[in-house]
Amino acid sequence: MNIADHAMPELGATEDRSAMIRDHLRDAIVDRRLAPGTKLSEAEVGTLFDVSRTVVRAALQALAFEGLVKTERNRGAFVANPSPDEARQVFDSRRLIEPGIARAAAERITSAQIAAFRERLHDESRLLSERGPSARRAEIHASGDFHLLMASVAGNAILLKFMEELVARSSLVIALYGRSGASSCGHTDHGAILRALEQHDADLASALVLSHIDHIESDLDLRVSEGMPLRDALTL
């Protein structure tokens, strides 16, 4: 047995630890437990998870690829703070991808998958009745899960990966810019989409998804604030 044979299990374990850290950080970012602009120190994250900086760096690089983390030369990694233009691009991307996913899902969906969707909608209904920031974060997460389930039903692993990235970015954008006025509207949209999927109506499911994305984006306040002059800002 050569050195490479010994190294392979260790390499796999390193990748697993890096993926675990990536997932924990992603959840914290999307849930706004880590605010946009927060510095992600490799040393501090490594200490928290009892791993090397190399493992942490791999996790941060994966999140940077997803657009949830930004790295700056000689400064390190920071939680992304998407601009209004970047937010629009996220939803433009979803308009290009999701109608096709809805079509494929409508053609493939099974009774067991329909039951899974209904469970998601039940969770959304419960969260809509709750109040507070934590409920709002959970609601955003549950809404994203609905779209990921649809991508999973569509049966295309590549598109599912794209949607995982887009939903993560969307959740961050919604948490930053959402006025939260379209929550019940979004839940109603999900119900209509599910009915179209259950009827195997690909055209209707595709059209409803496009309308739903429009509803989500219309709830965002993407106006750019120019701020105030220092004198005015400090005048009581």
Rank of each mutant, 00 (worst) to 15 (best):
L48Y: 13
V51S: 08
S52Q: 05
T54R: 10
T54V: 12
V55F: 01
V55A: 12
V55E: 02
R57I: 00
R57A: 01
A58L: 14
L63C: 08
F65E: 11
F65I: 14
E66N: 06
L68V: 08
V69Q: 03
V69K: 04
V69F: 03
E72Q: 15
E72G: 07
R73A: 12
G76A: 04
A77V: 06
A77G: 05
A77K: 03
V79K: 03
N81H: 05
P82D: 04
P82T: 01
S83D: 10
P84A: 01
D85T: 13
D85C: 11
D85H: 10
A87P: 00
R88Y: 10
R88A: 11
Q89Y: 15
V90P: 03
V90W: 04
D92M: 10
R94F: 09
R94M: 13
R94Q: 13
L96M: 13
L96S: 10
L96A: 08
I97G: 00
I97M: 08
E98G: 02
P99Q: 06
P99W: 02
P99C: 09
G100R: 06
I101K: 01
I101A: 04
A102W: 06
A102N: 09
R103S: 13
A105I: 08
I109V: 15
T110A: 10
A112M: 06
I114R: 05
A115L: 09
A116R: 12
A116Q: 09
A116L: 12
F117E: 00
F117C: 07
F117K: 03
R118Y: 08
R120P: 07
D123G: 10
R126E: 13
L127E: 03
L127G: 02
L128N: 08
L128C: 10
S129E: 13
R131H: 14
R131N: 15
G132L: 08
P133L: 07
P133N: 05
P133M: 03
P133F: 03
A135E: 01
A135L: 06
A135F: 00
R136Y: 09
R136V: 12
E139W: 12
I140Y: 00
H141M: 10
S143A: 12
S143Q: 14
S143R: 11
D145H: 15
D145E: 15
F146R: 05
F146N: 09
F146P: 03
